[in-house]
Amino acid sequence: MNEPTPAEAAAALRAVHEGKEQVIKSASGSRWMWIISGLVAFLYSAANDLFPAERGWLGLPVVAMCLVLALSLRTRVGGTLLGRPVMVSSRNLPLTWRLLRMAPIFGIAIAVALIIQLFHVPHGGIYYGALAGLYIIFLGPRFQLWVLRRQNRD
């Protein structure tokens, strides 16, 4: 077996890293999915705030949509239908980092709840929905990339 020279070994290691990076970058590929998710988060929170009597059934379509989306993205055919040609692996991602993906949404919820409590702001649900929606649309893909890159680095 021909052993690679140190330069060839270093080049091969770079190629391995670049290959992984290509897949990770594709994780935030479907921009429209982030936009729709952000809009749904905003509309759901706003509707809950404006129509408190309808809370009982308002959550059902959102839960159904989340389930369909999550299950579709886990399957090959579903992923292809949603324009995702690759399913990024998170098998090497520690549990704490997986949970951390949800942390910003909970952080926003706690911050908004505190502000509403302290300053008696009306329609807090609308503000929360707007902040959570903006986070999902603009920062969600970046945060997802950052978390997934952790497993590439570790």
């Binding site: 290509q22 897949v23 690759v86």
Partner: peptide, 10 residues
Amino acid sequence: SLLSAADWAE
């Protein structure tokens, strides 16, 4: 390398 970062790829 590409496939190692994915559960599956087209």
